[in-house]
Design a protein around this nucleic acid. Structure first.
Lengths: 125, 125, 125, 125
DNA sequence: GTGGTCTAGACCACG
DNA sequence: GTGGTCTAGACCACT
């Protein structure tokens, strides 16, 4: 269900949080659907419960999840909203880098080639 | 001359190294020009010499400077080479994010608008 | 388990790193197996933890280990990969020296006798 | 006459010593011929006299040069003797590495290909 | 308890 | 004076 890569430089809690956010974004987790409990998920992944707790806290901070005392953690927004939020993040990350690349001599054509997949551009069959 | 931000999450040695790399890339530091000595820069920035040492070590690992015992640290490569190296980094960073954005529904037009500083902006103003 | 020679010209952190790399190459350390913790190894060898830290950093730079915050350091690559890497290093070291020896008058036969452990030795016994 | 490369990791005094040894080996410097004075060479190369002094000391330690107080430094042996000495050094350096390579799986054919130049093997036109 | 970073102060090799 | 290494001790982020 969830994949942890210890070699990945990122901390575990971040990997867990990212996985859930990705699932929420793609619609695999509907709004108000409940996440696995901290203890249960910790056992499944053989991870310290503190780490799961922190991952859920991270998701709450990002606005992806809300927690109800004594009940559990739940997805807070629909996938469309989350998708837009993530797209805005990506936009700033890309524009910042595009700006730097432009200052280093990259021109329109080069930048466009970076964001448009090579080969087949239409269809996605 | 050099600015350190303690609130910046990045470690100090990395900030120092990045600053020098940026200066070398933009041509502000010519090849074979000498960098400030470890001790002197440490005093100017009120930083431990060990931290500067590490920053210079990082730059050497990146191929931006070379060090001569008893003489000092010097810029190793010309700005053109360094610029190409940095552009390749930016390319991968951008393509990875563009790929994710595309999976989230971004189309060519949207991605292109992110990398091209258009004077005309639709909506948002 | 690990041997440090203070008279050896090489820095301690390099000796430590080399020892672990050699063990990983010969298969004594399997991929994903955990290395001793920085503090523990420092105590065993009566060495400053900082030096061990640096040795592990060196190994990470070489691609021999990966580190996980709060967990420890682990072997990253299999012995076959590491072996090939080391063989390439040895190839360049040998070819460089063979070239110089050739310029000094060594012929094919002499060079071959150096790299092949012949039971029969002419003269010298 | 003599070439110093500051980017070369090796210390200056070693580079100077190596250059003279190479010249003595190839016969460019005859036995008992005088080397340039410490001060003069230091000026020519824009190097600290201490460094030249150390280079000459290194050469004396290697048995390539002998010094006469108040007179100067002189080549000690003929090129044939020096050549043999250097060849013995290269032999040990190569055999040690060949032994390690063999332990890592290199076979005769591989090792021979390392010490015999690719392409044309006869003639040296 | 783990690794990652930083500070403080010392010694050595090199020039 | 320079860089390179090592020690000692501290704090932080992560598990």
């Amino acid at each position: 269900m969830l994949h942890i890569d210890y070699r990945d430089g990122r901390p575990i809690y971040e990997q867990v949080a990212d996985s859930f956010e990705r699932m929420a974004i793609c619609g695999a987790l509907a709004p108000d659907s409940q996440l696995p409990s901290v203890r249960q998920l910790a056992m499944e992944l053989s991870i310290n419960p503190n780490t799961i707790q922190r991952a859920y806290g991270e998701l709450e901070k990002r606005g992806v999840v809300y927690s109800v005392k004594g009940k559990g953690n739940f997805i807070s927004a629909d996938c469309v909203t989350l998708r837009e939020r993530r797209l805005q993040e990506l936009e700033t990350e890309i524009t910042v880098r595009a700006k730097e690349a432009r200052e280093l001599g990259a021109d329109d054509q080069m930048l466009i080639s970076w964001v448009i997949p090579t080969g087949i551009k239409e269809g996605k069959p």
